[in-house]
Design a protein around this nucleic acid. Structure first.
Lengths: 212, 212, 212, 212
DNA sequence: AATGAATGAGTGTTCATTCAT
DNA sequence: AATGAATGAACACTCATTCAT
C-alpha cells in the first residue's frame, strides 16, 4: 500500500469510475472493477464516497459546473463581438468542452435516455441552454424596439435536435467515428464544424435574425 | 393458470421487456420485473428465451430487420420520383419508423454508446445507411458522365451527426420533449421536420448536388 | 407423437433414466434430458411415475428382485453339486447378473456411498447375502454334528470387501477398464475370474472349510 | 461479525464442504448448506472459491497430493526392507491414508463411477499405482537377469479389483460397517487386514514371485 | 488513510412438477 | 395416452456495502 495524497487518491477513483461507467454504463459497472483498476482497496472507495451513486453524482456535478461556466463565459465575456461571432465562440467552446468531457457526457447521455431516469440532468441542461439562448435573442429584439415574434416552442426542435444534440453526439461518438472512418481528430473536427455551419448556423441567419 | 396462445405470450414478454429495458437500461432491468409486469411466471421467460441477453437480441433483430426494410422500400420502390422526393420519402418513412420503435431505439442507442459495447448494431446500421447514400449519389454523378468529387469522409460528419443522429435523437426524446415543451405529437413532428428541412435537407441541395 | 404401446413407453423411460442416472448420478440427471432422450414428452414421465424418485425406486425394485432370484436359484436349485461347485455357480451367476445390470448397480452403488443415503439398498443386500452365506455354512457344520466356530463378524470383512464388493466393482468399472487396458469383454472376465479364484475362493477353502 | 483468520475460515469451508459432499454427493450438496453449517456467510464462500466446482477441485488436489506422497514414501524410503515388508508397509500406509481421507475418497469414488464423469481422478490414480507396481516387479525380475513374463493386462484385474479397490471400499464403508456389524475401529481393521493378507497378499507370493 | 474479511439482499437461471387440453 | 405451456421453490452466484483492525 503506497501512501498517496488524499486528494490524489480520490481523484484517481473518480477518473477510473468515469472510464468504467463510460465503458459499461453505470449499472453495468462494478465497484470491484473500479477499485481494481484504480489500484485501491474497495473499502477505500466507501471511505471517500457514500455510495456508488455518489461517485456518479460527484462526477456529474463537476461536469455541470464546467458546463455552466462555458456558457456564461461565452455569452457574457465578449461584449465587443458581433452576435455571429459570439455564437461561434460559444459553439467552439462547447465543442471543446464536450470532447474533453466525452466520457462523462456519454454517461450523462445514457442516463438521460432512460425513461425512468434518475439523472435527467443532461436534458435539464439542454433546455436551460435553449431558454438562455431564446432569452438572449429576445433581448436583442427588444433592444431594437421590435416585438419578439417567437415562442419557446419555435426553437425547441431546431435548437435541441440540430443544435445541442449534434454536439453531444459528436462527443459521444468521437472516438468510434475516427476509427470507423479512419479520420484524425483534426479531420473529424473540421468536417463536423463545416457540417454544423452549413446547417444549424446557417439556419440561425436565415431564420431568427431575418427580420432584424 | 390460464392457458394463452404461445406466440401471444412470447410477444407479451418481448413487449414488456422492451418497455422495461427502455425505462432502466438493459443492465438496470430485472427479469423479475419483466415477469411481474408481463403477468407471467419468471420461469416461463426462460421457457421462451435462453437468457436475458437473448431477449435483447431478439428485440434487436426485428428492429434491424424492420430498419433495413424501410431503407430498401424507400430507395428502390419509387422510380418515378425525383431525387429530392425520394429523399423526403426516405426521411419521413425513417421518422415514422424511429418514432414507432422509439423504445427499442432508445435501448440500442444506449448500448451503442458504451465504449465496451456488445451491441454496436446502431452504429453499424448508421454507417451502412450512409454508405448506401453515398453510393446512390455517386451513381447519379456517374450516370451523368461526371467524376464523383467526394470521398466517404466528406459525408461522415454531415450525414451522421446532422442527418441520421437527429432522427434517432428525435425518437429517443420524443415523449420527454413533448412533455417539457407542452407540445402535441403533431406540433413536435412539424417543428422537427421544419428544422430538418432548413438544415440537413438544405445542405444536400447546396452541397452534394451543386455541381450537377 | 407416435402412439406406442403403453408398457413399451414406460419401459423406454425406465431404460433411458437408467442410462442417464448412470452417466450423471441421480442428482445430476435432469428429467428434461430423460424425456428428450427417450423421445417422450416430459409430462408423460409424470403420467407414468409419481416423481423422479419413483423412477429410481422402480428401477431399484427390479434390480433387487432379480438379485434375490439369482441368489435363490444358485443356492437352492442344484442339490447335486458339491459346495465348491455351488459356490462357483453362484459366483458366476452373480457376475453375469452384475454385468448385465451394471448401469443400475452403478447408481445403487453411488447412492449407497452417500453418508445421508436414502437408498442404502445395496448395503442391505450385501449384508443379507453374507448372512445367508454364513447361515448356509453354519448348516453344513451342524449337519456334520460340528459346532460352528465363527460369528458374523468373522465373515464381515472377508465377504464384504473381498467377496461381494469386487463383483460390484467389476460391474461398475467394467467398461472403463476394458477401455483403459484395451481388453476384450472375455479377457477381462477371465482375468477377473482367475484373480477372484486365487484370492477369495481360495480363502474359502483354506479357512471356513478347513475344519470340516 | 467476528473476524477470523483467513486461512482458518477457508479451511473451515473446505472441511464442511467435504462433509456435506460426502453426505449428499456433489450434485446433491447445497452451497447454502455448506455456508450455514460452516457458520459463514454464503458470499464468503465465493470470496474464497470461484465456484462450487472449485471447492471440489481444491479438495481433490490435496487428496491426490497426499496420495502420491504415501506411494512415494512407501516404495522408496525403505531400502533395507524385503519386498514383502515393503508391500506391507505400503498397504498399511495406504489403509491409514484411505481411512483418514474417507470422506474425500467417498466423493472421488462417487464421481469416478459416473459414466460421464468430470472427475475420473480416482481411476487415473489407480492405474498409475498399478503401473508403478508392475514396473517395480519388472525391475526385480530384470535385476535377477530374468525375463519378465507378464504384461500390464495380467495385473489389471487382480490389482484393481482385489488390491486397490478393496482398500477404497474399506474407507468408504468404514463407518457403516462398524455400525452394521457392531465392530470397533480396531476390530474392523484387523479383520480387513487378515482378509486382505489371506487373499491379495497371498496371491502376490503365489503368483508374481513364484518364478523368482 | 487503508485493507482483508464479511454480509444481506438480490439476480439470472434451473428444475421437478403440474395444468389444461 | 400425450403434449405444450405454466409454475413455485430452489439454486449457484453477484454485488454494493460495512466491519474490524
Amino acid at each position: 500500500m503506497r501512501k498517496r495524497d488524499s486528494a490524489e487518491t480520490k481523484e484517481k477513483i473518480l477518473r477510473t469510475a468515469e472510464l468504467i461507467f463510460a465503458e459499461k454504463g453505470f449499472d453495468g459497472a462494478r465497484v470491484d472493477d473500479i477499485a481494481k483498476r484504480a489500484g485501491v482497496n474497495k473499502a477505500l472507495i466507501y471511505y471517500y464516497f457514500k455510495s456508488k451513486d455518489e461517485i456518479l453524482n460527484e462526477l456529474f456535478e463537476t461536469l455541470m459546473a464546467d458546463g455552466s461556466q462555458v456558457q456564461n463565459d461565452s455569452l457574457t465575456s465578449y461584449p465587443d463581438l458581433s452576435r455571429e461571432e459570439i455564437f461561434r465562440e460559444f459553439f467552439e467552446k462547447s465543442l471543446d468542452y464536450a470532447v474533453k468531457h466525452r466520457s462523462l457526457i456519454k454517461i450523462a447521455f445514457i442516463e438521460s435516455m432512460k425513461t425512468d431516469s434518475k439523472h435527467p440532468k443532461l436534458l435539464e441542461r439542454c433546455t436551460a441552454i435553449i431558454d438562455k439562448e431564446v432569452e438572449h435573442i429576445r433581448k436583442v429584439y427588444e433592444s431594437k424596439g421590435l416585438a419578439f415574434p417567437y415562442t419557446r416552442k419555435d426553437f425547441a426542435a431546431m435548437e435541441f435536435f440540430l443544435g445541442i444534440m449534434p454536439i453531444f453526439n459528436y462527443a459521444v461518438y468521437f472516438d468510434r467515428l475516427m476509427e470507423l472512418y479512419e479520420m484524425s481528430e483534426m479531420e473529424l473536427k473540421e468536417q463536423f464544424i463545416k457540417a454544423f455551419r452549413m446547417t444549424h448556423m446557417q439556419s440561425h441567419q436565415n431564420k431568427y435574425w431575418e427580420k432584424l
